[in-house]
Design a protein around this nucleic acid. Structure first.
Length: 802
DNA sequence: TATCGTAGTGTTTTT
DNA sequence: CACTACGATA
């Protein structure tokens, strides 16, 4: 016998040391860390510590390589002695010993880690940094888009784009498509730009070319879309612009047309790791296969039960059929959960068990059962919101930090009702989602100037800002310029530059030349100044800041200042800051306002945005048929995805979970009766604590009109949440507190009076209109906002003239 | 050309 | 309800 068995499995002594090193991981996690050789699929349930696995795996790859294949000579007495020392020694000693017998440990720059979000990439890099020190810096870690962009920056000229290409976001590409529809004389009513954009994006996600789309087209509309798609691609190329889908597609095209380049990257990346694989679309899957097929050391991590982005082209098939691409695929399930109570997990397991297309997992925890899940029915959404706030105040009083609590909903529209209760109760909250920083008009405008400076062929950005601020360059002029640009195959900026030579532009000539002069000056300026200086120059020279100041757009001004500091941060954090680099970063980084764990406020967000997060206390609101599951998805036969979404929502909760639903729901201005989500019936009733409103429905007046909550203005917090108050006209239906009676007499104002509001400050009453028991009051606040408020809600205090 | 008023239209959205 | 996108006016 040799010193090891010859079955090809790892040596037991090495395993012993690895177990010691990874003592904090469970058996499956350890297996997933050390199985570095060959393709691996890790099915990681929610809260199963998959990031820990990924980080440790990279650590393992870089330090020990494929150490499980090591066959060191334990027969050598000297070596055996060292092994004994490591076996009985401390962790650093163990590590040193293992490093000595490592098998082909990888260089950091030969490891590729792909995530979906910048946030995940950032977290990943941070944890790698802690574990690996300086080695972490060399690793290629980033999102699909940033990795591809990095490759494309060096090589996209090989397929006819400039290496300093521009990235278009969804808004830009929709504008371009809209322009094409106009230019092709298509009626937007027949084919809205949005629909075309959607169809084109979906084709790109599935790697369908315009030609393929045209040949497979079955109706006039489809043919039209194919033509638009074709034209769209050629215009993007002319502008040297890529949309989000193109960033992936172009990498594929590049590799397919340049096999030696592909070979280079295949050779470079010894190990590939991909997180959240259930969210990949076919293009991204192809990219992983393309790069991974050389060495086959591909590890993909994901959870088929958490696939919730099919509407964006993601397909669970990529994870379910991964073994078709890699027949020797090894699969490891991580089912032990370190996040939630067993009750929460059982609810999640029961629900997701009703889905058919899945690999099948059963989450469990070694922690306790925990509390039951609270299912609460309420009559109206106002009461639902009050219930949620009441519970939050109760928990808060018992010591739960507000930052530990989240309210989740299926659609953003639900947040309104909940938000108003938070305001009313003066509970600090933060709404996530909605308009993101880089999608704000003013930010996009400044970015458009910067883009045009760095890429003069960017017609879409030129269109955006040529008349912002107003330069008397109107629709007619732009139309004429477009015609010339199409005829002579020139970018719009070139047309503007030569406007004197086109008779049709004679009238606008001076204005156009002035605009070109401005862009030219800014380009010159940009060549020899810092990002910060460039941004400042842009906002002053273009008159943009003045425009905001003159219009008293203080909010927007503030956003522009925020943008200036974003530029500064980029400059300070980047080793080689360039304008193009800054523009790329802001195209690929969607939000600067991320979820902050230390925040002392309740988080309100959609279930989609909550993915990857966890909270000790979670409320899932509007758990109603038609909302969750959404009526649209049910109609399209996507019930399984809705169920996965509910599964994601439930598994966010660590300790306490509430499911609330109402009898009536107002959405998009229409109020309709609602019934509990069918998902509620799929949950074992013994895990639920169900609360019904105590008083029968007819006894109360559910007009939905807001009721007074504070009888006196001023100090907050005392009026709601105290026990024992009866609701008007009925018994106390909450076990958590009722509504105090209102005093209509306390809210009486007349126009011209000065008032003070807790949040908005001082202001002057513009109008006052009685509405039943309440009144609608319009106030012009000193901060420039004019607000219409329900007098009883507003908690206004009379004030002296400022 | 700019602005104002109204008709239309609404999931989810890591990049 | 709330927001945008477009068409009629000044």
């Amino acid at each position: 016998m040799q010193n090891t068995d010859n079955t090809g499995g790892p040596d037991n002594r090495i395993l012993f040391l690895l177990d010691k090193l990874y003592a904090r991981l469970n058996v499956s996690q350890r297996e997933a860390v050390r199985a570095v050789n060959g393709p691996l699929l890790v099915l990681a349930g929610a809260g199963s510590g998959k990031t820990t696995v990924l980080v440790n795996r990279v650590y393992h790859i870089i330090n020990f390589g494929d150490i499980c294949e090591a066959r060191p000579n334990f027969g050598d007495p000297l070596f055996a002695r060292e092994y004994e020392k490591a076996k009985n020694g401390d962790i650093p000693q163990t590590k040193e010993f293992l490093k000595r017998i490592a098998v082909n440990p990888a260089n950091p720059e030969n490891v590729l880690c792909i995530t979906f979000t910048n946030k995940a990439a950032g977290e990943f890099k941070e944890r790698l940094g802690k574990m690996l020190g300086k080695d972490a810096g060399g690793i290629w870690a980033g999102t699909f888009h940033s990795i591809c962009a990095r490759i494309l920056r060096g090589h996209i000229d090989k397929i006819g784009f400039s290496n300093s290409f521009t990235i278009y976001d969804a808004d830009d590409s929709k504008k371009l498509i809209s322009q094409i529809i106009k230019d092709l004389n298509i009626d937007e009513k027949f084919l809205p730009a949005k629909a075309a954009a959607q169809a084109i994006s979906s084709s790109k996600e599935n790697r369908v070319t315009p030609e393929e789309m045209l040949t497979s087209s079955r109706d006039a509309r489809q043919t039209l879309i194919a033509r638009i798609y074709d034209e769209y691609m050629s215009r993007l190329k002319k502008a040297s612009a890529l949309d989000f889908d193109d960033i992936i597609l172009s990498a594929l095209v590049l590799f397919e047309s340049h096999p030696r380049l592909l070979e280079y990257y295949r050779d470079k990346f010894d190990y590939i790791l991909v997180d959240e694989y259930q969210d990949t679309n076919p293009s991204q899957n192809d990219l992983v296969l393309m790069l991974g097929k050389g060495k086959n050391n591909v590890c993909v991590v994901g959870d088929d039960d958490q696939s919730i982005y099919s509407f964006r082209g993601a397909t669970v098939g990529n994870i379910l059929n991964f073994d078709k691409s890699f027949p020797k695929l090894k699969t490891i399930k991580l089912e032990q959960n370190y996040r939630s109570t067993q009750n929460i997990l059982s609810v999640a397991n029961a629900l997701i068990g009703n889905n058919k297309g899945r690999k099948g997992k059963n989450l469990w925890t070694s922690g306790g059962e925990g509390e039951k899940i609270i299912a609460r029915r309420l009559y109206t959404q106002a009461e639902e919101a009050e219930f949620i706030c009441g519970e939050i105040m109760r928990l808060s009083a018992l010591g739960t930090p507000l930052g530990d609590i989240a309210v989740l909903y299926r659609v953003n529209a639900i947040s309104n009702a909940i938000e108003s209760s938070f305001i009313k109760n003066r509970l600090p909250y933060k709404i996530f989602g909605g308009i993101r920083f880089y999608e704000r008009k003013e930010i996009k405008d400044i970015v458009a100037y910067l883009s045009l400076i760095s890429n003069p062929a960017d017609d879409i950005r030129l269109r955006r800002i040529i008349n912002t601020p107003k330069r008397q360059i109107g629709e007619a002029t732009l139309e004429e310029m477009t015609a010339i640009s199409l005829k002579n195959r020139l970018p719009l900026l070139e047309v503007a530059k030569n406007s004197s030579s086109y008779p049709t532009l004679a009238r606008a000539c001076a204005k156009l030349e002035r605009f070109c002069g401005l862009i030219g000056d800014l380009s010159d300026f940009a060549r020899q100044n810092t990002i910060n200086a460039i941004i400042n120059e842009v906002i002053t020279r273009t008159g943009y800041l003045k425009m905001l100041t003159d219009a008293k757009e203080t909010d927007r001004e503030e956003m522009v200042r925020e943008f200036i500091s974003a530029g500064l941060i980029y400059e300070e954090s980047s080793e080689n800051p360039t304008l193009a680099g800054f523009l790329e970063e802001i195209s690929l980084v969607s939000d600067i306002d991320d979820y902050d764990e230390g925040s002392q406020s309740v988080s309100l967000m959609t279930v989609h945005s909550a993915k990857g997060l966890e909270f000790p206390v979670v409320f899932i609101s509007a758990f109603e048929e038609g909302v969750f599951p959404s009526a649209m998805s049910v109609g399209e036969g996507n019930l399984e995805e809705e169920r996965r979404l509910a599964y994601v929502a439930i598994t966010r909760a660590k300790k306490k979970l509430y499911l609330t639903h109402t009898d009536s729901r107002t959405l998009y201005g229409f109020t309709s009766p609602s019934r509990p989500s069918s998902f509620l019936e799929e949950i074992p009733q013994n895990l639920l604590e169900t609360y019904e409103p105590e008083s029968p429905r007819g006894r109360r007046n559910y007009t939905g009109s807001p009721r007074a909550v504070y009888s006196s203005s001023g100090r907050g917090g005392e009026a709601y949440g105290k026990k024992g108050k009866s609701a008007p006209g009925g018994g106390n239906k909450y076990s958590f507190g009722g509504e105090p009676p209102k005093k209509p007499g306390g809210v009486d104002f007349s126009p011209g009076e000065y008032v003070e509001h807790k949040y908005f400050g001082k202001g002057k009453v513009v109008s006052f209109e009685k509405m039943g028991q309440d009144a609608l009051i319009e106030v012009d606040f000193e901060n420039g906002q004019v607000k219409k408020l329900m007098a009883s809600f507003a908690k206004l205090e009379k004030s002296k003239k400022p």
